[in-house]
Design a protein around this nucleic acid. Structure first.
Lengths: 155, 155
DNA sequence: CTACAATAGCGGCCTAGGCAGATATATGTT
DNA sequence: AACATATATCTGCCTAGGCCGCTATTGTAG
């Protein structure tokens, strides 16, 4: 299995790591801008990071604990505690102690959280579609598969 | 030109934005770990963010000002000032006021910076190759082209 | 059952990026 | 020349993530 890069011919500006870091920054910055600009959402002051948590709570099927979210999102546990504090303060999320395993805190979107979600999702989808402009569906699938493989290679 | 995602069928865990964010986090975390673990570099305490700046100074041809780096790296100007402070303190980088335009600060790697660079680059290339394991060169090129296009779409 | 390890969440501390405002320099206009 | 505007850098302030240690709870080995 051949290596992709070797030191002699390595071109920093064309490397996957460099490009991916920049695309990620630009994509989240765009999402932050558009969440902040939205008439309804601006009152909540939802950030891209907070939106990503909401997606895991509203947009996926199974019930999630705080540590589930940390694993899902490659996110620090201490930071997650404070993230949930913020979402709870905004009334978007509720903490619920699990009775079967009292170490766990299950998280649940409130009514307000579920109500705000569709608009957030709409903005997020629009931003991603904009970044993918000029690609066809097979391209997007390939890109997704590449990223999935890379995530798997992270171990 | 068709949109890639629509709200009804959107799968958060398979979205490009989600995957890319996670891959980026994991890749930089791996780079940080291995920079910190290296016998020679650990004394310098070089982080992945600092390495990325060094790449722009040593690994690319033309002379760079602080604001060039900000543009290159989608990086805040205030944060860049402090980043350069840190690199200067470690003796890896030198500030040089431009005489033709005295607003500009040109940046230059010191001898120590150039000496430490090859090992950093080696580690970075190894990390990226590991994340790309299982891909052939055409795959990597396609991935690079996708990312380049997305960066261009950011505007 | 007891002792020890593992896991979940929380809080303190440190670091670092984003933003706004200030200063110095350069450029363009009248 | 005088003035306004734009750019580059720096600084202070705020926010937020990473790391480490703490406590509570659960799981496991003896």
């Amino acid at each position: 299995m051949a290596n992709i890069y070797d030191i002699e011919t390595y071109e920093p500006s064309e490397s996957i790591g460099y490009l991916m870091t920049r695309v990620k920054v630009e994509m989240l910055a765009a999402l932050d801008r558009e969440l902040a600009a939205d008439a309804h959402l601006s009152a909540l002051g939802v950030t891209s990071a907070q939106f990503v948590v909401m997606v895991r709570l509203v947009g996926t099927a199974d019930r999630k604990s705080a540590s589930d979210l940390c694993k899902d999102l490659s996110y620090d546990a201490g930071a997650m505690t404070r993230m949930i504090d913020r979402l709870e303060k905004k009334g978007l999320v509720r903490r619920m102690r699990c009775v079967k395993d009292r170490r766990l805190i299950y998280l649940e979107a409130t009514e307000a959280g579920r109500a705000a979600y569709p608009r957030m999702l709409e903005i997020s989808v629009a931003v991603q579609n904009r970044f993918l402009r000029g690609m066809e569906l097979p391209d997007a699938r390939r890109l997704r598969d590449y990223l999935t493989r890379m995530l798997h290679n992270a171990g």
